[in-house]
């Protein structure tokens, strides 16, 4: 994989850089493809199992592809007190999938996150990296409906 090759080049094929390398692969592909892990293991010369342990240990890595829109509900303490859990339940009802899963149509991935440090905005939902402060169940369903209606951006063709 050319992209993986380039990422490894950027840091150097050293053990101490594997987490950074995986982070960049995650950013590029939105998940860690198996071939990418195999390639990193071979290039950095570390046992595949060590890489697999790292990939499953840290929060920011995902071994399965993500949906078009990534919805993250913050479950920090402040968000929990102000009803974050209810938002999770509302999303489970709305999307028909559990936390950590993707809708069958590939449109939404739904995750929870333990505090993004924006506690004054609790309860907080992040959709595609954008902050939605002081969220309510009702508002959330409306945002979802809007996202569903919006067509995916047209492909740029040459």
């Amino acid at each position: 994989m050319r992209e993986v090759e380039a990422i490894i080049e950027r840091y150097g094929a050293k053990r101490r850089h594997v987490i950074a390398i995986l982070q960049d692969i995650q950013t590029q592909f939105h998940y860690l493809p198996r071939e990418a892990l195999l390639e990193v293991a071979a290039r950095v010369r570390i046992p595949l199992i060590d890489l697999y342990s790292i990939a499953t240990f840290y929060n920011c890595f995902s071994l399965v592809p993500r949906g078009e829109h990534v919805i993250r509900v913050c479950l920090g303490t402040a968000c929990h007190l102000k009803g974050g859990t209810r938002l999770v339940e509302a999303l489970e009802r709305e999307l028909g999938v559990r936390e950590g899963e993707m809708t069958p149509d590939g449109q939404f991935s739904f995750e929870t996150v333990r505090c993004v440090g924006a506690c004054a905005l609790a309860p907080l939902v992040l959709i595609d990296g954008r902050y939605y402060p002081k969220m309510k169940q009702r508002k959330l369903t409306q945002v979802l409906a809007r996202l569903r209606r919006a067509r995916p951006p047209a492909e740029v063709t040459q």
């Binding site: 479950l75 920090g76 303490t77 402040a78 929990h80 333990r114 505090c115 440090g117 924006a118 506690c119």
Partner: peptide, 11 residues
């Protein structure tokens, strides 16, 4: 690595 939920001083 400010991981405490509910904290954003270091940030």
């Amino acid at each position: 690595d400010e991981g405490d939920p509910g904290a954003f001083m270091d940030r």
